[in-house]
Nucleic acid binder design. Structure first.
Lengths: 181, 181
DNA sequence: GTCTATATGCGGATAGAC
DNA sequence: GTCTATCCGCATATAGAC
């Protein structure tokens, strides 16, 4: 673990923003190298190919979201409503950044028809999301019911993000996040 | 209106399947011309460019979905539950065909970051979907509440489709469609 | 209307100098 | 590790014969 932000981490961070916004296929190395201020060919020093870059970008964002948002669900000293309220606020910031919605949903709908290996990372992060909400809901109901409620909450949120982006109207996501409880 | 299916309609139908499955950018004219059994250059006889083809494909699918599914909502002689049940069955067939989910959601997440003119067609079809469900829900509740319920139902369905495709598990969409009432 | 041929540019990826 | 230069293939799109 380096003391200062490595060049590679900057590449991951800046690439993530672009791919999040534009998608995997729509984002070329020309776009990426411009945003990262490095040469096109330099990506191949850090990454095997575009698919490898994508996998590392997804893992980078997934780690960030897990530690900054999903982990809040396990603060068992706080009441459930408060945990959900904080998570909801952070999720809204996440989804509204650059009007790009949920990176993992974007990639799912773009790539589900392929067998791209990085989809496994997407499956994992949605599993973490549902597990986090299930943990909170289990306070008031048995496990299976809590899990079902968590799945429906995630689905409602993802549908709301789609509507928000299509109609450029944040009230959809506000409504979904305010109804997490 | 020609008496027999025109060549152009076949092109629209076959192009729709491919683009639905693979997305707009991922589908090349090479893919399309193979599927339609015509020459690459021949597309430019029927369509101005790829964007024009896409707009006509979307309109073609939208017309089909409207007349075959959404119109069922206005069969006021049938009880609400029965209308929802029939629509749910037809929607499931639609979304599970080729495991490709909802074409309009796919295109939304792929293209929302652009100002592609064909997004207007997508907005229109989601408006029709919500209007159809609202019409049914209005039997039992005032307009604004019915509309809110319809929006949430659509969001739940679109989120469920995403989960279905990600985990290759139809139980997500079954659950969402069984809870339309 | 349908074909062949091809223009033109951009995509990902690599070689090899420094 | 970072650069320049470049390969190769595929993308959209067009020209023009038949």
């Amino acid at each position: 673990m380096p003391l200062v932000k490595t060049s590679k981490e900057e590449i991951l961070q800046k690439s993530a923003v672009l791919i999040w916004e534009q998608g995997y296929k729509h984002t070329s190395f020309a776009d990426l190298s411009k945003a990262c201020a490095i040469r096109n060919a330099h990506f191949y020093y850090y990454f095997k190919d575009k698919e490898d870059l994508m996998a590392q970008v997804l893992q980078y964002v997934a780690n960030h979201v897990k530690s900054k948002i999903f982990d809040l669900a396990y603060q068992d000293n706080l009441p459930a409503a408060q945990r959900l309220e904080i998570m909801g606020r952070k999720l809204k910031t996440l989804y509204c950044r650059n009007n790009s919605g949920c990176m993992f949903a974007n990639i799912t709908l773009e790539m589900a028809h392929t067998d791209a290996p990085f989809l496994e990372i997407v499956r994992s992060i949605f599993g973490d999301f549902i597990a986090a909400l299930t943990h909170i809901y289990e306070i008031d109901m048995p496990g299976p019911a809590a899990n079902k409620k968590a799945v429906r909450a995630v689905q409602q949120i993802e549908g709301a993000i789609m509507m928000m982006r299509l109609y450029n109207d944040k009230s959809y996501i506000d409504d979904a996040l305010n109804n997490l409880l």
